[in-house]
């Protein structure tokens, strides 16, 4: 299957200048590959750097060395050296990211927030809104909440808004950071169905899943970040 994401010999360390310039090494020599139709679980115990690695794949965190290439527009783009414009374009059209945190401008209605990524891709507002309605319905966000800002919602509702927003566009590559963490069984089943649908249309997915059942249900493989932790093989 066609490769969509490729990390090669990636290292990462954090230098904390405000705390005596201590340097914390995180990863050394990570090689990772993700292809269309795959769903790879990033695994490792809490604090092993799963989220850090995922943020690096999204170019939210920098790499200290190595390369991370994403298939964007039929070409490989190295996101460790690409310009901000290029990365924003890559995120808009190629890579979706469902984070654990909802960060939005206060006051903006939920429906608009969910529809936004499709509008940014050039869809008409009515079409994007229709699709947003479908997703919010599937994720059991009551219609009376759609015109309100999600900042007033419960944690689980906010997470579902994040998921709706992340799945509204058919991104070729998707990163999911604990998408089912605080969901009840029905909503978890919906998220699993969304992931299956994305896989079957050929999306390349990397995810962090806190529970085995979810992982076993949707993942085609696993990638243990622990083996690339600095000092792991000492």
């Amino acid at each position: 299957m066609s490769e969509m994401l490729h990390a090669q010999n990636v290292t990462k360390s954090f230098t904390l200048h405000t705390q005596g310039s201590v340097t914390i090494p995180v990863f050394d020599g990570v090689n990772f590959s993700l292809s269309a139709g795959e769903c790879i679980a990033l695994t490792g115990e809490s604090g092993s750097g799963k989220s850090t690695f995922m943020r690096m794949l999204y170019a939210n965190y920098t790499c200290s060395s190595g390369s991370i290439k994403v298939m964007h527009d039929g070409d490989w783009m190295d996101i460790t050296t690409a310009s901000p414009h290029a990365i924003l374009d890559m995120r808009k059209r190629t890579m979706g990211y469902v984070s654990q945190f909802l960060r939005v401008i206060p006051r903006v209605p939920t429906l608009e927030i969910v529809a936004e990524p499709l509008v940014a891709l050039g869809a008409s507002r009515p079409d994007a809104t229709d699709k947003a309605r479908d997703l919010l319905t599937r994720l059991r966000i009551p219609e009376r909440l759609w015109q309100l800002s999600p900042l007033t919602f419960s944690g689980g509702e906010q997470q579902r808004v994040n998921i709706a927003r992340g799945f509204i566009a058919d991104y070729p590559v998707m990163l999911l950071d604990e998408p089912t963490a605080s969901l009840d069984a029905d909503n978890r089943a919906t998220v699993l169905a969304l992931i299956e649908e994305a896989k079957s249309r050929g999306a390349a997915i990397a995810g962090i899943f806190h529970d085995h059942e979810t992982r076993d249900a949707v993942c085609t493989g696993a990638f243990d970040v622990t083996s690339f932790k600095v000092g792991a093989n000492d």
Partner: peptide, 8 residues
């Protein structure tokens, strides 16, 4: 990139 500068 804004989120890169603020988060890392």
């Amino acid at each position: 990139l804004t989120d890169q500068v603020l988060d890392d």
